[in-house]
Amino acid sequence: MSGLEIGYLVLAVAILIFLIPRAKHWLSNSPKAEQGDWQAFLFPIALVVLFVAGLMWLVSR
């Protein structure tokens, strides 16, 4: 393992330590989704997936 990889590993662990309390907060304090909320989220995300796939296809041609 190179010094750079150890550095990236330490950075990733530091990011985890930073994120875990925030994730815990949001997991216990997020409001519950109402009817149609997940569809409203998944619709634009599906468009992003299609857009990124389209970009990759265009570049690979």
Partner: peptide, 10 residues
Amino acid sequence: DFSFLGGFLF
């Protein structure tokens, strides 16, 4: 209101 996504995204 997309705040219900908080826990899921984190």
